Simulated scan of single mutants.
Amino acid sequence: MTPASSTSRALSFDSAAAQYAANRPSYPAALFEAIEDMAGRPLAGARLADIGAGTGIGTALLHARGARVVAVEPGEGMAEQFRRGLSEVPIVRGDGNHLPLATASLDFLTYAQSWHWTDPDRSIPEALRVLRPGGALALWWNAAALDVPWIDAQTSRVERHFGLGRAVGGNGDGTHEALATSAGRLDFDRRHIRWTRRVPVGTHLANISSHSLFLVHGEEGTAAFVDAERRHLLAVFPDGMVEETYDVGLLLAIRP
């Protein structure tokens, strides 16, 4: 398979927006407590933009904590799914490289699973532009916990399927931190939060196959992997319920 471009992978989510919304993991309350602690202010009442909001998984939790949220999303299909589930939150089309937001207008700028789709040479200056002095840029990713044996084994199978090495296909956030700091204009603090969720095998498989590598791979190749993976999972979880373990990697910087 010819490697897909970053743009085509990013926009591939539009074709699977409902699958993404129904099966992707959410985030633990401890994440938002850490954001408030690191930022030195509550989310409640804060003016906040959630960039690359997708179907609104992270946006909904920020809104529930009382933030005054606007969502920014480049994909038409993802934005449509967002409106279905979160009609009370405004959403505008755009991306982190060209934020459709006023200068010095925000207390928080957040990226849930989406900073890696930006060019930091453009997205960091944009973050500095739209944040007020003392405002916080918060980036986070759910990363599969590779110290859990069955997750490590599954990750290796995914890597073999796509011809990837662990440095490319792994779930550690070292690459994410490099992306965040490459422009050298902000100092990021870092935290990790571990959490779990227990879901049916079908939900787990729908979750992993909603990732961009699978979406651009084609239905036939994805179906073959999913069928084989179901057998592997049922050998580990004979009751059909998978315990997924995640490490949320959080990076937060304060605008000078």
Rank of each mutant, 00 (worst) to 15 (best):
G163W: 02
S182M: 10
L139D: 05
A138L: 05
D119P: 14
E177D: 01
A102F: 10
A144C: 11
H116I: 09
S210C: 05
L205D: 05
N142R: 03
A145H: 08
G172V: 07
I193P: 07
F188L: 03
D107Y: 02
L146A: 15
G96F: 12
A112T: 10
A145W: 08
S182L: 11
E126D: 03
E229R: 03
R194D: 07
H217C: 08
A144I: 13
T203A: 07
E126I: 03
A104E: 13
A228E: 11
T196G: 00
S209M: 09
R198C: 13
I151V: 14
A143N: 13
R194Y: 08
V130T: 12
L137T: 13
D227Q: 07
G170E: 06
I124D: 03
V226K: 01
H161Q: 10
L186Y: 15
L164I: 06
L137V: 15
T110R: 03
H217Y: 10
V199I: 09
T203W: 00
A153Y: 06
V158D: 01
G202Q: 06
Q113R: 06
V130D: 09
V199N: 07
T155R: 12
P149V: 14
H98I: 07
E229S: 07
T110H: 00
D152K: 10
F225Y: 14
L101W: 08
L164K: 15
P100N: 08
V168W: 04
L213E: 04
R122Y: 12
Q113V: 12
T181W: 03
S182H: 09
N142K: 06
T196H: 00
A136S: 14
I208V: 13
L128H: 01
H217K: 00
S114K: 00
D227T: 07
F225I: 05
S210W: 00
S156R: 15
W117M: 12
R198K: 14
D173L: 06
L99W: 04
D189W: 00
D147R: 12
L128F: 00
G94R: 02
G163M: 08
L186Q: 01
W140L: 02
A144G: 14
A223Y: 02
H176I: 07
T118I: 13
T118Y: 14
V168K: 02
F225W: 12
H98K: 06
V199K: 01
R122H: 14
L146P: 14
A104K: 02
P133G: 06
E220R: 12
F214P: 00
N142Q: 09
W141P: 00
A138F: 02
L99R: 05
E177W: 13
H176R: 01
S156G: 12
A143L: 13
A223S: 05
A223E: 12
V201W: 00
V201F: 03
A143S: 15
